[in-house]
């Protein structure tokens, strides 16, 4: 069955990217207590990989639904896989190839946005709720750009191209704040499409916005809220992303035929791979707070 083969192929791609990335990671003894810069870089690596993983599986499912009508629909799968590998490999030295992958991810996201906008504009109804709900999602490709940006930030931090100071912390906080906000918009749109039929559907449009606001405060250098509070909301956002997979699995079960009818319900039910994008962005936000902390110290 084609659906099953495709699922196996994408999982294999994911596993290869993760294992390849980790294998390429420079093999060195971990210090007892890592410097905050190292911690922040690792969080960024992980955040980028999580975001890219979410994009890999989500675009695989959505583009499979779209029958891979254009060859271009395979691109995000390839680029997201490369981003996972590049992010997890944790380069110590400036590395053109890794930089190239991250930049490619950023550009692919922008190109995807263009394609998705084109898809909406050519449909009857144009910029209508119908097309925002059901045509190619406007926000989704942005996650790949964010993965690229986050991965690049991690790499530059580690290689020393960017100094772990308060300025870079604030820039990173702003990036994460905007990223989370974009994700919130996408989630709100799709949960509105689902009429918020389950009260839990409100969680991902209430917790992450608070985290985003906190990060915005941090980015603005307002001094409030505290880094501790911000971190709390970021961890809550990260948890929301992981819990979302569980909620969505429950959602698939609630469709007609449940998991037995997976060939329909994995596509029509709530998307399993989407929620962890929150986790990836929250990790980027946590990295930002780590840098700020170091600057304070």
């Amino acid at each position: 069955m084609r659906g099953r083969n495709a699922a196996i192929a994408v999982s294999g791609l994911f596993a290869a990217a993760v294992l390849g990335g980790l294998a390429a990671r420079s093999n060195r003894p971990a210090p007892i207590r890592q410097p905050p810069r190292e911690q922040a870089a690792r969080q960024l690596d992980l955040g980028a990989a999580t975001l890219a993983g979410s994009v890999l599986f989500d675009s695989a499912v959505e583009h499979y639904r779209g029958s891979f009508e254009h060859r271009g629909m395979y691109v995000p799968l390839a680029v997201a896989s490369a981003t996972i590998a590049a992010s997890l490999s944790g380069a110590r030295q400036p590395n053109r190839m890794r930089t190239g992958v991250h930049v490619l991810a950023m550009l692919t996201g922008v190109a995807g946005l263009g394609f998705h906008i084109y898809d909406i504009s050519k449909r009857p109804g144009g910029w209508s709720w119908q097309n925002l709900f059901y045509a190619a999602p406007v926000g989704a490709p942005g996650a790949l750009s964010l993965a690229g940006l986050t991965g690049l930030a991690g790499q530059q931090l580690r290689t020393g191209q960017v100094r772990p100071d308060s300025q870079s912390g604030r820039a990173l906080a702003a990036l994460a704040a905007i990223g989370i906000l974009g994700d919130v918009a996408e989630v709100w749109l799709l949960h509105f499409r689902g009429a918020f039929h389950n009260p839990a559907m409100v969680l991902p449009v209430t917790i992450p916005p608070v985290a985003s606001l906190c990060l915005a405060g941090v980015a603005a250098g307002a001094g409030r809220p505290s880094l501790r509070t911000t971190r709390g909301w970021l961890w809550a956002t990260a948890a929301t992303g992981l819990a979302g997979v569980g909620f969505h699995a429950w959602g698939v079960h609630r469709m007609m035929g449940g998991w037995r009818n997976w060939s329909q319900n994995l596509l029509e039910g709530p998307p399993l791979p989407a929620p962890p994008s929150y986790t990836g962005l929250a990790l980027a936000g946590l990295a930002a707070t780590r840098l700020m902390e170091e600057a304070h110290e």
């Binding site: 499409r193 689902g194 039929h197 609630r254 469709m255 007609m256 009818n261």
Partner: peptide
């Protein structure tokens, strides 16, 4: 979307 014990349209 789901509603109570009723499942959404397939």
């Amino acid at each position: 979307a789901p509603r109570g014990r009723a499942r959404p349209c397939v």
